[in-house]
Simulated scan of single mutants.
Amino acid sequence: MEENMSIEENKAIIRRFFEEGPSKGNLIVADELLSPDFTLHVPLPVSPGIEGIHEVITTCRGAFEHLNVTIEDLIAEDNNVAARFTAHGIHKGSFMGLPATGKPITMTGIETFRIKDGKIIELWGEANLLGLMQQLGIFAAP
């Protein structure tokens, strides 16, 4: 019984992280959920650790107005939680060197989190950046 409770608590941490971090830009609450030893693994040029997640959230929220990230699936086992998400927004600021297009975007991705002592200690992220670039007109759709 205890294991199921901790899995549900871990899922709640990840739900709160998505709601407060990417969707609201609340770095203070995001920081409360991160371990001081947090490690970030994403396909973007960012600083290590907590500073890196600040850069990801700040950059994405600056580039995409009305950014909202919805968790589609949340799967947990032991201290790991995987989240499949969909992000919606409007491209109103520079992103990866691309000036604003004003186009609406929908981007999907998967992030896997490792939790230790009630804090997120590691995050691996994969997002459909090719699909995003197609929506912004950088690459033609196949």
Results as ranks from 00 to 15, higher is better:
N80G: 04
G118Y: 10
E19K: 15
P36N: 11
G137F: 07
E55F: 07
S47R: 03
F18Y: 13
I105K: 10
I138R: 13
G93H: 03
I53E: 10
T112R: 06
A30M: 10
E19C: 07
S35K: 13
I7H: 05
N80A: 11
L136W: 12
S6P: 00
L129T: 15
N10R: 02
T112E: 02
Q134N: 13
T39Q: 05
P99Q: 07
E20S: 13
D37T: 10
F139S: 06
N26C: 02
A100F: 05
D31R: 11
M107F: 03
F95L: 13
D73P: 10
G118C: 10
L136H: 14
E3T: 07
E2N: 11
T39A: 05
F38S: 02
A87H: 02
K24P: 06
D117R: 11
F113M: 05
L98Q: 13
A83S: 10
N79I: 04
E2G: 09
T112Q: 05
A12G: 06
H54A: 07
D73E: 15
A12P: 00
E19M: 08
C60K: 12
T59I: 13
N68Q: 15
R61Y: 04
I53F: 10
D117Y: 02
R16S: 09
D78R: 09
A100N: 03
G137W: 08
R114D: 02
F85H: 14
W124F: 12
N26T: 12
I14T: 06
I57P: 01
I57M: 01
T70I: 14
R15L: 05
E20L: 08
K11V: 01
N68G: 15
I71C: 01
N26W: 03
E32P: 00
K116F: 02
V81M: 09
L40P: 00
G49S: 11
K24V: 04
E9V: 04
E111R: 08
R61M: 01
K11M: 06
G62L: 01
I57L: 04
T59S: 11
A76T: 02
Q135F: 11
I105E: 08
Q135S: 09
N68T: 14
K103P: 05
M133L: 15
P45S: 08
L74F: 05
V56D: 01
S23L: 05
E19R: 15
D37R: 11
M133K: 15
A76D: 00
K116M: 00
L132M: 15
E19V: 13
H91P: 03
T58H: 05
E126I: 07
L67K: 04
K24C: 09
T101F: 11
D37W: 06
E77L: 06
E32I: 00
M5I: 08
P104W: 03
R84F: 09
D117G: 06
G102N: 08
L40R: 00
G62T: 03
R114F: 01
G62S: 12
T86M: 12
G118K: 09
N128W: 07
G118A: 08
P43T: 05
T106P: 01
H54C: 10
T39G: 00
K24S: 12
D78W: 01
R16K: 15
A82R: 09
S94L: 13
R16A: 08
P99D: 06
F85V: 14
H54R: 14
K11T: 00
H66P: 02
E9D: 05
